[in-house]
Amino acid sequence: MQKVLAQAGVASRRQVERLIAEGRVTVNGEKVSVMGTKVSSGDAICVDGALIERSDKLYYYLLNKPVGVVTTARDPQGRSTVVEIMQGVPARVYPVGRLDFDTAGLLVMTNDGELAHRLMHPSYGVEKTYRVWVHGPVGINALEQLRQGVNLSDGKTAPAKVVRRSGLQQRRTVAVDQKSDSFEVLEVTIHEGKNRQVRRMLGAVGYPVVKLERIAFGPLNQERQLLPGNYRSLTKEEVQKLRALVGLT
């Protein structure tokens, strides 16, 4: 059952085991408490009373998440979610990781729970690249701190890759304080998943983020331009690259 629920995108296998232990999973109306319970295609599996949609086919999409959309299946505050954007696809797909409400950019959506779990697990070190707008210029010392790791409240970050990009010609794309003379654009690559990590790293070295977007996730990038709110299917080659990246054949 853990495999079925993970493949349906409910959670990772480890998280599914926690759901079972907490008595939140039922099969055909009966609460399940035994790990490794076998299920068939005709069984009705529910988590917290909600019927799980099962699909024998795996789907993979790349979404350009807009600002103002939350990376969850449901939002108590009634805000738009990435799952709602994907309502037109053949199966219910879930986000791989998270992007903040006020962060835009590339997000993988899939019902392949095993792949999603590995892509999110820090041990596989999947790199994510962000384009960051800050009031500049950014000092050399700040760049070196980012490249060596920054002390945050939940521990020191791993070293980040940081590249300067000229931001002056992109000024019209960013809502900035008009009193500021200029801002600078950096590209920051990390492989961890601490909460709001890039924003906290830049804030810790004295450069609060003005605008943030993810421009690459592992081998996936914006080479094939996606407008905010749009999505596309991953190619067979792209799926193979993602699976190879985390040791899946």
Rank of each mutant, 00 (worst) to 15 (best):
Q148V: 13
G88F: 08
V4D: 06
P159K: 01
P66F: 07
G42K: 14
L245K: 00
L146Q: 03
L220W: 09
G125I: 04
Q170E: 12
V162N: 10
I45L: 08
C46W: 09
P208H: 12
A116F: 05
R18M: 09
V83I: 05
R214I: 07
Y124F: 11
V210Q: 01
G9N: 00
G68D: 05
I52D: 11
K241M: 11
T110I: 07
G88H: 12
N230R: 14
G68V: 12
N141D: 15
L202Y: 07
K179R: 14
L51N: 01
L152A: 08
V132W: 13
Y207C: 11
T235L: 06
G203Y: 10
A91S: 13
Q170V: 06
K194P: 00
P122W: 05
G23W: 09
A11Y: 01
C46T: 15
K211S: 12
L168G: 03
L234K: 10
G218F: 00
Y61R: 10
L234H: 06
V185R: 09
L99F: 13
S166Y: 08
Y124D: 02
L186G: 03
K156T: 15
R147P: 11
R18T: 13
M35C: 06
V16F: 07
A104P: 00
S33I: 08
K241R: 14
N230P: 06
R243H: 05
M109D: 11
G97S: 09
A8V: 01
N230L: 12
W133F: 15
R224L: 07
V93F: 08
L19G: 11
V126I: 13
F101G: 08
L143R: 13
E53K: 15
N151C: 13
V82F: 03
A50T: 15
V39G: 02
R172A: 10
G155V: 04
R171A: 10
R14S: 03
V67K: 15
S41Q: 11
R200H: 12
Y59S: 02
R24A: 02
R14H: 03
T26F: 00
S33H: 14
V239T: 13
Q145Y: 09
